[in-house]
Design a protein around this nucleic acid. Structure first.
Length: 224
DNA sequence: ACCCAGGGTCATA
DNA sequence: TATGACCATGGG
């Protein structure tokens, strides 16, 4: 899928949903925590967990590591997978502290940061890219299930390819543009959850010629 | 009573 | 490389 087509899709999404304001957080560290907590989880549930962490005054790597696994799991309970995520959050905190925090890490190259993040237990390609884009302002196109489904149905040939293949095809087509990627990913998520899922064929799908994005739990790339 | 949500790990073939 | 089980809450 070429640059013009990708920009056309972006334009329609932007016209339909308006400018997004991602990532919703008060600090870089809160972005990282949210990126882990939102794994396969509705954001509304993540918000409760983050509020609980703020109320307990533990939204920092040091304070969070000082909690027991059980205490941390109890605080983040509303976000689901709380035992798994408690361990993942601690691994992320250790990573931050070991490398001197955001002030040191922000001087690393994007590739070095990604490789390091991927070595942290519980951080996969999407969570790593969320952090790179929204906490470190790197020009990274975040790919999630919505991205594969929407662009796949709009005819992108790599939509079902491995994560890195699809990401690099999008980034090489669009060129490094942090602000564009920030909005694009947010808009795709907004599109997926606010409009496209509940309705058989939303306004965006009507405007974007060739989009057969139908409702329901359908396999990726099955529509036309 | 389902289905799904801003995934990732691990075991298995 | 590619499936499948597992993790768990809350809203529709």
């Amino acid at each position: 899928m070429n640059k013009r087509r990708l920009h056309q899709v972006f334009r329609v999404l932007h016209q339909t949903h308006g400018p997004q304001h991602w990532w919703p957080a008060d600090s870089r560290f809160e972005v990282m925590v949210g990126a882990v907590l939102t794994q396969n989880t509705a954001w509304s549930n993540v918000e409760r967990a983050i509020v609980a962490l703020k109320d307990a005054h533990v939204l920092s790597p040091e304070a969070l590591l000082a909690l027991s696994d059980a205490e941390l799991a109890r605080l983040i309970r509303p976000s689901g997978y709380f035992n798994v995520k408690a361990r993942r959050l601690k691994a992320l905190c250790r990573w931050c502290l070991e490398h001197g925090g955001h002030r040191r890490l922000r001087h690393w190259s994007t590739d070095r940061l990604r490789a390091s993040l991927l070595s942290v237990h519980g951080i996969g390609p999407e969570t790593a890219d969320d952090i790179l884009l929204y906490a470190f302002d790197r020009p990274v196109f975040v790919i999630d299930a919505y991205t594969r489904r929407l662009l796949g149905r709009l005819g992108h040939p790599q939509a079902e390819a491995p994560y890195e293949t699809f990401r690099q095809s999008l980034e090489s087509a669009l060129g490094a543009d942090t602000e564009l990627f920030n909005q694009y990913h947010a808009l795709i998520v907004a599109h997926g959850k606010d409009v496209c899922r509940p309705k058989p064929r939303c306004e965006t799908c009507r405007l974007v010629r060739g989009c057969g994005f139908a409702a329901g739990n359908r396999a990726l790339g099955d529509a036309q």
